[in-house]
Amino acid sequence: MQHEWMFQTLRELQDYAVNHEFLRLKEHLDQAVDLAMLEVTNMADNRPDPGHQVPP
């Protein structure tokens, strides 16, 4: 996955937040993961079909 580095970084930040009892930060990072997944999914859904040509 092209964006795996971003998800790995977010997971590491989530772990850090939990280990240091930054619970509100963990909640926000959970939301960031959800939003990132949505964005990446939307990017993939909006890619043009390679066989489809856009008229000039």
Results as ranks from 00 to 15, higher is better:
L23F: 14
M1F: 08
A32P: 01
D15W: 00
A32M: 10
M6Q: 14
E21C: 07
H3K: 11
F22H: 08
L13M: 15
R24H: 12
L25M: 08
T9I: 06
A44E: 15
N42F: 02
Y16V: 03
E27S: 12
T41E: 10
A36Y: 07
A32T: 09
D45I: 06
P55T: 04
Q53I: 05
Q31L: 12
A36R: 09
A17T: 05
L35T: 11
F7C: 05
D30H: 08
P48V: 03
E39Q: 12
P55D: 04
R11V: 00
N19T: 06
D15M: 03
A44G: 07
Q8S: 14
A36L: 14
L13A: 13
V18Q: 15
Q53G: 01
T41A: 11
G51T: 07
A32D: 09
T9N: 11
M37E: 15
Q2A: 15
Q31P: 01
N42M: 11
N46R: 10
M37Y: 05
P50V: 03
W5C: 08
P55V: 03
H20D: 06
M37I: 03
D30L: 05
G51L: 10
M43A: 13
L29F: 00
Q53S: 07
D34G: 05
Q8A: 13
L38E: 13
H28Y: 11
P48F: 00
E39L: 13
F22Q: 07
D45Y: 06
E12D: 15
R24T: 08
N42W: 01
N42A: 04
L10K: 09
L29E: 03
K26Q: 11
H52K: 09
L13R: 10
P48N: 07
F7G: 04
H20Y: 11
D34E: 12
Q14K: 14
M6K: 14
D49P: 01
T9F: 05
G51H: 08
V18K: 13
L29M: 01
P50R: 02
D45A: 14
P50T: 04
L38I: 11
L23S: 11
N46M: 10
E4K: 14
L10P: 06
